[in-house]
Amino acid sequence: MNTNTNTNAIAAARQAHSTRCRQRVLTALEQAAHSGDEITVSAIARRARVDRSFLYRHRDLHAAVLVKAAEPATASTGGPSASRPSLIADLANAHDRITRLSHENTQLRQRLSEHLGEQAWRESGLCPPDDIDRLQRRVTELEQHTAEQRRQLAERDDELDATRATNRELMTRLNRPHPDGA
Rank of each mutant, 00 (worst) to 15 (best):
Q152P: 00
E143A: 06
Q15K: 15
A154E: 15
H62L: 03
R156M: 15
Q149E: 14
R46D: 13
L29E: 00
A63I: 02
E155K: 12
P128F: 05
L26N: 06
L61T: 01
D90E: 12
Q23T: 15
R22K: 11
R59Y: 08
S53Y: 06
A16Y: 07
T140V: 10
L135N: 12
E71N: 09
T40W: 04
A70Q: 08
A89F: 02
E104C: 06
L142A: 06
P129M: 03
D130N: 02
D51T: 11
R57I: 01
A48K: 02
P128I: 07
I98T: 12
L174Y: 14
I88S: 06
E38S: 10
A89T: 07
A69C: 02
T7A: 13
T106I: 10
H178W: 11
C127I: 01
T166Y: 11
R164L: 14
R109K: 07
L101R: 03
T140H: 09
E30G: 07
D37K: 14
G181R: 09
H62Y: 11
V50L: 04
E143F: 03
L142Y: 07
H103L: 14
L101K: 05
Y56C: 01
A45N: 01
A82D: 13
H34S: 13
R156I: 15
E118C: 10
D90H: 09
P85K: 03
T27V: 12
A182C: 05
